[in-house]
Nucleic acid binder design. Sequence first.
DNA 1: CTGAAAGCGCTTACAG
DNA 2: CTGAAAGCGCTTACAG
Lengths: 339, 339
Amino acid sequence: MKKISLKDIAKMAGVSTSTVSFVLNGKAEQMRISKPIVEKVHQIVKKSGYQPNRVAVSLRTGKSKIIGLLVDDISNQFFASCAKFIEDEANEYGYKVIFCCTENDAHRARTLLNILNYQQVDGFIITPTVKMNKDIEQLVQYKKPFVLMDRYFPEINTPYVLVNNYSGIEKGMTHLIRKGYKRIGFVTVDLKMIQMDMREQAYKDAQKKEQPASKQKLLLKLPINCTDDREATMQMIISFIRDTELDAVFFATNYLGILGLESIQQIGLEIPRDIAVICFDDNDIFRLHTPAITVIRQPIDKIAKSSVAILMDQLGAGKHKVQRIQVEIDPEFVVRKST
Amino acid sequence: MKKISLKDIAKMAGVSTSTVSFVLNGKAEQMRISKPIVEKVHQIVKKSGYQPNRVAVSLRTGKSKIIGLLVDDISNQFFASCAKFIEDEANEYGYKVIFCCTENDAHRARTLLNILNYQQVDGFIITPTVKMNKDIEQLVQYKKPFVLMDRYFPEINTPYVLVNNYSGIEKGMTHLIRKGYKRIGFVTVDLKMIQMDMREQAYKDAQKKEQPASKQKLLLKLPINCTDDREATMQMIISFIRDTELDAVFFATNYLGILGLESIQQIGLEIPRDIAVICFDDNDIFRLHTPAITVIRQPIDKIAKSSVAILMDQLGAGKHKVQRIQVEIDPEFVVRKST
DNA sequence: CTGAAAGCGCTTACAG
DNA sequence: CTGAAAGCGCTTACAG
């Protein structure tokens, strides 16, 4: 597959390479290249199927038209969906996407960032891991275009896109309370990331408002490594539901929601009380189960598209001049099944 | 972030750029560069954090160290898992991964292939769509390195990696028959791709062997666009199970399995018979349900790693000299829950 | 043992 | 209106 070069086209058209380049880059008018020549060049390019070598263009212009996507784990449903929308949207702007999985490991994230940065990536969309502050600060310092997604560091002034976690939980709580539930538990994980803190705070505030006198803590905060031992975590959830005699449980993440449903199913026969579940994000599993379920779905498409838009704005490729804003997105409120 | 160049390093070390280049590319010995100089260069490189500009290297060498991954849809759990393992494995070889979603649309696939090919991608890992034969043939013709994954075209001689679909279904059928099921239905989709044909054939062969006299067709072949209307498809599955009075159902894909479980749950009260389900691939949902279930899990890690290995072999970057073989992988046989 | 030089395929001031 | 030339940052024959 001998590739055709700009030079070849120029030779075929009987003009210089600069002329061809100008025509191809839409600068024909600006450079006052004659109509006949422009047409001739276009015709030859079309017939030959010529496409400029992006690598050469990159080297010359310093722009690769590639963005780097750093997520925890692409095989996680949430990130997989994000990736799909991001790729789709980036394509619209003529960008390609290289992805990497950080495994929520700051050290690994740094290595990946470094490799991609020093190479050919124009900008980043990043789901930051815990302890990644230093690296994010460095990106800011070096003025590298990037946008944080789903999480952020309140102490660093960066562009980011996230859902309004607080209001999501708040709405969910209001919904549960209206349905008449009295003892609403909350299961979360001690991730020490701002988005989890917000969710927890929203739950606590709603609880306080509703049942100011309530003494018993109805909150289960699982250890950060709870994903390592599925069975053990399920046991903790089961004990929690039993011991606290809940009539509804609110799971703070998708993963916990799935574990929770399994747990609830396991003890379903013993505890006949009605149980409602609310989770961030959506999943096939939420369609299949006995207790009532309410799902707060994150609008992944919006998160992804907004992230791309913000990044493109920084790259100066934005179609509409988007402000470098901090986008807030309200979670949709989806009731899946009602009692 | 002013980047350091080879030239800068050369200046700092007081040698020529060629010397630095040779040292960095491990050709110091071959070029008989003196020990002290080698060390000095290494030291300066380390101290300055210099990394060669990959774009320039690409232009010069014609190798980008990027591979293109074409899948139907990255947000699909199967492909998302593949992507993760592929990225991980590619990293091991020093490659990065650009991914694209074909949406199972041959036209879109061609465009993507063309863009990536004409640009900077060294090779491809492709989950081919229907009607993609022409494009694959072209890749072969142009000697572009690539490997097909999960599917292939029997009429084109290409490297590929797939699971042994026939044997997977065969084993599943044997398992069901041993459990005592008599009327085993099979739900598949009319995708017109070889991997689906193999699964169907395996089912038919097993049926014939077991119940040669059986008259009634226990096979449901859903239209190719069945993913468009979830509800309608579920109705078809429900009718099928009712009308044929099955005591077990075999779902040919993960997606169908999920739909199937929901359908079965819907009619669970009316049909008290025990129902066994076998699906390719795994999913959270398979842990949550009433009927007995058997899961045949595709070893995604092996599929992904083998694909990368085969591609790397073609790219000449293989660590161990892997033959350009056609890898066959037996599906694992996982019994999840027993009656 | 080491350096000067060509060239990968483009873009873009600069000169006419 | 168009062309010759420099240069992006590397690698690698080639000359010494």
